[in-house]
Design a protein around this nucleic acid. Structure first.
Length: 494
DNA sequence: GACACCCATCCTCATGAGCT
DNA sequence: AGCTCATGAGGATGGGTGTC
């Protein structure tokens, strides 16, 4: 790699050292996997790990992060990088050092994200059916980053332009036209004032200019790329800070500030390290018959057709592994809870972002158990209602990873830092009200989040949470609901 | 040793064309 | 009618291994 480069353009490989797992189901495509001799791949990986030591890159995040570091080392002051990267770059915890690198040494000029719902024509015979990706042969959500390496004094005044596209250009001429439009638009933008990107009659999306100093220097998420409507991200930020007009009385805190999370699924059931074996309830076996069977009840999978209401029942049984320490198993079981957060939420098909079980149990893979540190009646119920409401969904989608359009993934680290309703600051009366609302609604059938506006039960959750628990004007939330419901990511299906 | 990241998707099932 | 196979739509998760 030459030094003193002026421009580095890259669409790097995204492969990572770990996973995808389950080799019987997937083609394992590890870094350096094309080397015929596995020992060579191992040597290369070790050399790369050594080379990346102390840099912002992580083999965990994938090779994309390593290529950013490589570009950074090659770029001269004033040089520019232009990268296609996985959209998890915007939020993922392992990408935080890369975000810090870009904010501390560069002017981040463009952050372009597509929210294109269309399917690629089958006739073209190309792999991948989504047009959301800039690259071909993938349906993974992606982001285009353009940044210029600067002297410190020049970074203070720089401003990043976030572009959220409703539609990806279909061919190069369209892309060139769009690029010209971006450049023309940028100069007229006022900071934090979203503007439409129109060419003729066609609306391509929205752009918003952000002072770089307003982006989180600590590595926090770049949330303005989450929605087509940048205004929604701004609303979410105000809610998280307790500064949204009319919602100021809603206490918000990071989930990890007042709860602990249940165990990580690898510790529960990984064949090598897990403490338990898990057996799923067969479809033919009813819940009553299943509960006769010995074993420790647990929540394992998240099925759109089965998890239709706030109340959930166990779908799996844990069995202690004889070759594991009983006290370790008991310690893990002590992390059982009644509230469980959907770890990977497909927003169109799936209907619940959190569920409650009658008895404490462990969420194994699709459900992350949430355990309030100071338990009190009504706390779980209030959180469960919140997470399934418009406000809870909005803050979740903003804060979580978006590995694919239509999906919101919350690994433990992001779940802990996610802003949610601070139930510790609710009065007893509010908690009792939440318990009542939950009891009334817990068996009602919800629709997927794509039906956010039309779903009467979702409407009741919103309405009663506002009126009976939070004491805020439901119309404010209704308006946010209408905006959020328009977002393509709520409607994307694969 | 403990913890948990992220993955350039994969699997299932419905549908329908083509064949016998 | 019944079978096979191709195709596409739609729903979803295990785990190697980096990192502390």
């Amino acid at each position: 790699m030459p030094s003193k480069c002026h421009l580095v353009i890259a669409n790097p490989p995204y492969t990572r050292a770990g996973g995808p797992g389950d080799e019987k189901n997937t083609v394992w495509n590890p870094i350096f996997g094309s080397l015929l001799d596995k020992r060579d791949a191992e040597k290369m990986k070790n050399a790369l790990r050594k080379a990346l030591d102390g840099t912002a890159a992580s083999l965990y995040a994938g090779l994309g992060s390593a290529f950013v570091v490589l570009a950074d080392e090659a770029l001269d002051i004033g040089g520019r990088l232009a990268f296609v990267l996985p959209a998890t770059m915007l939020t993922g915890s392992r990408w935080a050092p890369i975000r810090r690198l870009l904010l501390s040494k560069y002017s981040v000029e463009w952050v372009v994200v597509s929210h294109d719902l269309r399917n690629r024509s089958a006739k073209k015979g190309l792999p991948g059916r989504r047009l959301v990706s800039f690259s071909e042969s993938t349906r993974i959500a992606e982001v285009l980053i353009v940044a210029t390496r600067r002297q410190h004094r020049d970074r203070k005044t720089s401003r990043a332009c976030f572009v959220n596209l409703l539609r990806n250009p279909d061919e190069p001429i369209e892309a060139l036209g769009l690029t010209r439009k971006f450049l023309a638009l940028r100069d007229g933008l006022a900071p934090l004032e979203p503007a439409a990107i129109d060419i003729g009659e066609a609306t391509w999306g929205n752009a918003v200019l952000v002072p770089q100093a307003d982006l989180p220097l600590d590595g926090g998420p770049w949330s303005l790329a989450t929605f087509v409507q940048p205004g929604l991200a701004l609303i979410a930020k105000r809610i998280a800070l307790g500064k949204h007009g009319g919602l100021g009385s809603v206490p918000v805190a990071e989930l990890g500030a007042f709860t602990d999370l249940g165990p990580y699924h690898m510790q529960v059931r990984n064949p090598k390290y897990g403490l338990f074996t898990v057996r799923e309830r067969p479809a033919a076996t009813g819940p009553a018959e299943w509960s006769l069977r010995a074993g420790i009840p647990a929540l394992w999978h998240h099925k759109a057709g089965r998890n239709t209401s706030l109340a959930a029942s166990p779908d799996a049984l844990l069995e202690r592994r004889a070759d594991r320490s009983r006290s370790d198993q008991d310690r893990m079981l002590a992390k059982s809870g009644c509230l469980h957060l959907a770890a990977d939420l497909g927003m169109a098909p799936q209907r619940v972002a959190a569920v409650m079980t009658d008895n404490p149990m462990i969420g194994v893979r699709s459900w992350t158990s949430v355990l309030p540190r100071n338990p009190a009646p009504g706390k779980n119920e209030a959180l469960c209602l919140w997470l399934n409401s418009t406000l809870g969904l909005l803050l979740r989608v903003i804060h979580g990873n978006r590995p694919y359009l239509g999906r919101s993934a919350l690994p433990h680290e992001l779940a802990r830092t996610m802003p949610v309703l601070d139930v510790d600051r609710l009065s007893n009366g509010q908690l009792m009200a939440a318990a009542t609302v939950y009891a009334d609604l817990k068996h009602r059938e919800l629709q997927g989040f794509s039906a956010l506006v039309a779903d009467p039960v979702r409407g009741e959750i919103n309405e009663r949470l506002c009126r009976e628990v939070l004491d805020i004007d439901p119309e404010i939330v209704a308006e946010i609901t209408r905006k959020l419901a328009l977002e393509p990511t709520l409607h994307a299906r694969h």
